[in-house]
Design a protein around this nucleic acid. Structure first.
Length: 121
RNA sequence: AGCGCAGGCCGCCUUAUCGCUCUAUAUUUUUAGGGAGGAAAGUCCGGACACCAAAGGGAGGCAUAGCGGCUAACGGCCGUCACUCCGGCGAAGGCUGGGGGAGGACAAGUGCAACAGAAAGAAUGUACAGGUUAAGCUGUAGUGAAAUCAGGUAAACUCUAUGCGGUGCAAUGCCAUGUAAACCUACGAUUGAGGGUGCCCGCCCGAUGUAGGAGGGUAGGCAGAUUGAGCUUAUGGGUAACCAUAAGUCUAGAUAAAUGAUAAGGAUCCGCCUCGGCGGAUACAGAAUCCGGCUUACAGGCCUGCUUUUUUC
C-alpha cells in the first residue's frame, strides 16, 4: 500500500458532491466531520476537504487546515481498504473554530476512518 | 552611544522520511530539474489583450488642476518655485539645514463664516460736528482682515481648461461529448417580433424566428496562459525619475485549485538562572490573464539623513 493522494483520488464532480450532501451519512470526531456515500461506479475512493470561510477568514489558515487533513487521510487511508472492494466518496469538513495541532487532526482522522469501517462492515 | 522622526533594504536556514504539481527524459512508472510574495492582499488608478455595432453624435457622469520633465499610460514618479512648519547663526535686513506643499477662476450666479461689533447685504445704534420743513442726509470716533466700500472661502455648489465609449480572461476562439429541428403558451415575418452590455439619437443584425413555461442533457479538453513595457551586470547620458548600447540569463503555472506534512539540528530575539542549561517566540500573510503604480498589514534585523541628550578629544 502506498501513501499516495493523486488526481484520481480527488473528488471533483459537482454532481457527486450534490448527491453526497443529499444522501450521505455523517460521522463526527471533533474537530472533524465526514460525509460519505457508497459509489459503486468508482474505481478509487475519492475524497475532498474543506474548511469554512465563515470560521477562517484568511486563505492561509484554510490552506493549512486542508493540507493537514489531506496529510492525515493520506497516511491512514489504508484502514479503509481492509474490507471488501466497495468504493466510497468522502467530504471531510473542519468544524472547529480555531486551528489545531497536527496530532489532534491526525487522531481525529484515525477515529473517523475506523468508525466508517465499522459502519460499513 | 541612546531616544525620536523620515526614507530605503532584508524578512529564518539545513538535513532526513513520506507526499503533491509542472517540465524534460524514459515508456509503465524510472531518472533529473523547477515550484508563492513584498505585499501574492484591498481591487483604488493606469495600460496590454479580447469582445461588443463602423465604436459615430448628444445629454449626463467621472477624473485631473503652479511650472518643467519621465513613461506604453496614469489620478503614478522625478525635479523645482510660491506658500508654510521646526531648528541654527545674526543687532537687523537676511543666510542656512530638515519637513510639508490637491496650488486654475470668487472681474458670472448661489451658498457659508468663529471672535469682536449696533450692524457683515433689506441693518443703520451711541457720542460729537455739520445739515434739513423732516429724514443715516454727510463726516469723524469706536469693532474688525474687511463697514453702501467691499473683502475671505471653490478637498462649497459652480465656472474654465484637459482627458475618459462599454464590459471584462467566468473576455474570447476551437475540439469533443450529450440532447430534441420534440411538447405547451404568446408575439411576429419587411407596414419588422425581438436583439445588438447604462440613457437618447443614429447605425447594425434579424425569420425552420423571438420570449416564456414544463421537463431533460452537458458542465471534459486545447488555445488564450506564462518570453515579458522581463531580469542581472557593465559602460555612457541626465541633478533625478529615467533613457541608450553591449553582454549574459529563462525565474511558479495550479484549475473542487500543487508549492506540503512530520522529525532532528542550527540561527536570531526574549525570560528564568545554580553561568551552564531550561522554557518560549520567529511577523503580516497564499499566485489564478499579464504588466506599471497607489493604499493598507507586518515579529525581528540592517543602512542613510535630521533633531535632541550624554560622554570623550
Amino acid at each position: 500500500m502506498k501513501f499516495t493522494y493523486s488526481k484520481e483520488e480527488k473528488l471533483k464532480s459537482q454532481k457527486q458532491i450534490e448527491q453526497l450532501f443529499a444522501e450521505g451519512h455523517a460521522l463526527v470526531s471533533f474537530p472533524l466531520k465526514v460525509v460519505f456515500l457508497e459509489a459503486p461506479k468508482n474505481t478509487f475512493n475519492q475524497a475532498a476537504f474543506s474548511a469554512p470561510k465563515r470560521n477562517f477568514k484568511l486563505a492561509v489558515h484554510r490552506n493549512r487546515i486542508k493540507r493537514q487533513m489531506r496529510e492525515a487521510y493520506r497516511l491512514q487511508k489504508a484502514i479503509l481498504d481492509k474490507k471488501s472492494g466497495k468504493k466510497f466518496v468522502f467530504l471531510f469538513m473542519y468544524i472547529g473554530k480555531e486551528t489545531a495541532p497536527y496530532e489532534v487532526i491526525s487522531s481525529a482522522m484515525e477515529k473517523l476512518l475506523q468508525k466508517m469501517t465499522a459502519h460499513n462492515a
